[in-house]
Simulated assay, not measured.
Amino acid sequence: MLNSKEIIEIIKYVNGSTVDEVHYEHNSFVVKVKNQNPQVEETVKSEQQEEPISQVPNIVNERGQEDVSPGPEMDTSHEEAETLTVTSPMVGMFYASPSPNDPAFIKIGDSVKEETVVCVLEAMKMFNDVQADVNGEVMEVLVQNGDLVEFGQPLFLVKPE
């Protein structure tokens, strides 16, 4: 069976290629990735709109205010340069704990290792552990329990060791 990193690699490959679809089955586990042909969509969008569309998702903080984070092409502050971002490997519902009655996997100030489970993401009734993939201290949790997260969306900021 594929792990989440292998699935991400398949998605990245299909997204940047001329492959229309990848279908993988192993026992009852099925992964189906379709290329939506983004080159054609971008051409249509640019003809219809004169202003460019931002590809950076807006994140709402705990007070309900929009967090306007700079995109990768913009300058970042000194503080942000000292942190690494743990991002979502897939689209799904974010859960900070293994069950509603259990404590959160991590909280601000906790030390994490690469293999530390930091949250679970639910997609199609399957729960997927998300690992930190970095050694360091959790500085900020960027999403709330029960939020729907997108592929590549920042979840946590970690100050590396």
Score class of each variant (00 low, 15 high):
residue 92 G to D: 01
residue 117 V to H: 01
residue 145 N to K: 02
residue 76 T to H: 05
residue 160 P to G: 05
residue 25 E to W: 07
residue 43 T to Y: 10
residue 153 Q to D: 04
residue 99 S to C: 07
residue 1 M to I: 13
residue 40 V to T: 13
residue 95 Y to N: 09
residue 79 E to T: 06
residue 87 T to D: 02
residue 3 N to C: 07
residue 77 S to I: 00
residue 49 Q to C: 01
residue 28 S to Q: 12
residue 150 E to Q: 13
residue 132 A to D: 01
residue 119 C to P: 03
residue 50 E to G: 03
residue 108 I to S: 00
residue 156 F to G: 03
residue 122 E to S: 14
residue 73 E to Y: 13
residue 11 I to E: 10
residue 78 H to W: 05
residue 123 A to K: 14
residue 4 S to I: 14
residue 93 M to I: 11
residue 77 S to V: 00
residue 147 D to Y: 02
residue 44 V to N: 10
residue 73 E to A: 10
residue 137 E to C: 10
residue 13 Y to I: 14
residue 61 N to M: 06
residue 27 N to E: 15
residue 24 Y to I: 15
residue 124 M to N: 15
residue 73 E to Q: 10
residue 48 Q to R: 09
residue 59 I to V: 12
residue 136 G to W: 13
residue 76 T to Y: 00
residue 29 F to R: 07
residue 127 F to S: 04
residue 86 V to G: 04
residue 41 E to I: 02
residue 41 E to R: 08
residue 36 Q to F: 06
residue 5 K to T: 15
residue 25 E to N: 12
residue 106 I to N: 04
residue 154 P to H: 06
residue 149 V to D: 06
residue 155 L to V: 02
residue 77 S to R: 01
residue 64 G to N: 08
residue 146 G to A: 07
residue 66 E to H: 05
residue 132 A to W: 06
residue 159 K to H: 09
residue 146 G to R: 05
residue 106 I to Y: 05
residue 49 Q to S: 04
residue 51 E to T: 08
residue 132 A to Q: 03
residue 144 Q to E: 04
residue 94 F to A: 05
residue 106 I to R: 03
residue 80 E to K: 11
residue 146 G to T: 07
residue 43 T to P: 02
residue 37 N to W: 09
residue 87 T to V: 06
residue 161 E to G: 00
residue 105 F to A: 00
residue 14 V to D: 05
residue 40 V to C: 03
residue 151 F to W: 11
residue 91 V to A: 10
residue 141 V to K: 06
residue 43 T to D: 15
residue 39 Q to A: 14
residue 123 A to C: 15
residue 81 A to T: 13
residue 44 V to Y: 14
residue 155 L to T: 02
residue 100 P to A: 13
residue 79 E to F: 06
residue 104 A to Q: 09
residue 59 I to E: 08
residue 145 N to M: 01
residue 96 A to D: 09
residue 7 I to Y: 04
residue 49 Q to I: 00
residue 67 D to R: 11
residue 65 Q to L: 12
residue 100 P to Y: 12
residue 122 E to F: 15
residue 104 A to L: 03
residue 81 A to H: 10
residue 85 T to Q: 11
residue 157 L to M: 13
residue 66 E to F: 05
residue 161 E to S: 02
residue 148 L to G: 07
residue 54 S to N: 07
residue 69 S to A: 14
residue 77 S to E: 10
residue 100 P to G: 11
residue 79 E to N: 08
residue 138 V to M: 14
residue 110 D to V: 13
residue 119 C to D: 06
residue 59 I to C: 06
residue 72 P to L: 15
residue 117 V to A: 01
residue 140 E to F: 04
residue 117 V to M: 00
residue 122 E to D: 12
residue 51 E to I: 07
residue 13 Y to W: 15
residue 137 E to W: 03
residue 38 P to R: 01
residue 66 E to Y: 02
residue 45 K to E: 10
residue 51 E to W: 00
residue 136 G to C: 15
residue 95 Y to V: 08
residue 119 C to M: 08
residue 155 L to Q: 04
